[in-house]
Design a protein around this nucleic acid. Structure first.
Lengths: 144, 144
DNA sequence: ATAATAATGGATATTTTTGTCTTTTTTTTA
DNA sequence: TAAAAAAAAGACAAAAATATCCATTATTAT
């Protein structure tokens, strides 16, 4: 459904958000080990998220990654997925046709658009904070 | 959503099915040009479909690909997707966790399972014949 | 200032997916 | 039986995704 990069990105954001809620910055190492992802690859993904102001990074000792409260209060799954995987999952034709639309639909167009719009709606309505809450309550897990 | 191979596979099946309804066998060339796919790559995908009795092939002049009526009457999108892409799209964790389930769900588990089960239901209930009908009525297209 | 810490950036490597090319096998028709 | 047509099979190539390594830059504490 999502690329590996996107999966790591989502998990990393949930973990960093959880720590940010408690005013803790986290290092790359902590992120990677907490979400069980390859460190250097995760670094690239975090860079990407930082360059697009979804995550904040500070260098030096005491540095690390965080998500500032004003950003966290608005952050949704859709922001992360859109940044990393683009909008193909919302817009792209189910059969990969370049020009598939209401007027000239592919055979699966109408079946897919229902699923797709529900996926879109779900990603846009799910906040990272709501996912952090579940983590915090011990109801969900980021590893294994 | 699906791999390129799977997209080609679905389009190829719809095209071959359309021709089989009219008792016409089609060559690899015809398939590839009709669905706008790379010929040799499409060949591999058709081989795979043939080995798994979703498509039939006959060698020699007058040979070509077809889908026998008894198969076509049962064939659904899910059969093709499952063969080519496997069951990750139904079963796999949205965050790529190996062991994510009802008891130990990842943070997005419950949000995703709704979408996933709808996707599953859609693929399992959509027959290739119903898609051929739309093609035939000029309501949908396989290229562009 | 210096050393230590942590992210950044760039180059490189590996793996997977996608795509190609060539030879072989099967079948039909002449 | 020989030639032609068509898929099968296997090796190979290119592109994309995933992953690693190393030198650089910024920040903090000593």
């Amino acid at each position: 459904m999502f690329s590996k990069a996107c999966e790591y990105g989502i998990k990393a954001c949930i973990f960093i958000a959880e720590q940010s809620v408690n005013n803790r910055r986290v290092s790359l190492k902590e992120v990677a080990s907490s979400i069980d992802s390859p460190e250097a690859y995760t670094s690239k993904i975090l860079q990407h998220l930082c360059q697009n102001n979804i995550v904040r990074s500070d260098k030096g000792p005491l540095g690390g990654f965080s998500i500032p409260a004003p950003i966290l209060s608005h952050l949704r799954l859709s922001n992360i997925v859109y940044l990393i995987d683009g909008d193909d999952i919302y817009k792209g034709c189910g059969l990969g046709l370049k020009r598939c639309n209401e007027k000239l639909p592919c055979p699966v167009h109408n079946k897919f658009k229902v699923i797709r719009s529900e996926l879109k709606e779900m990603l846009e309505s799910t906040t990272i904070l709501s996912l952090v809450d579940k983590l915090h309550n011990g109801l969900t897990f980021l590893k294994r």
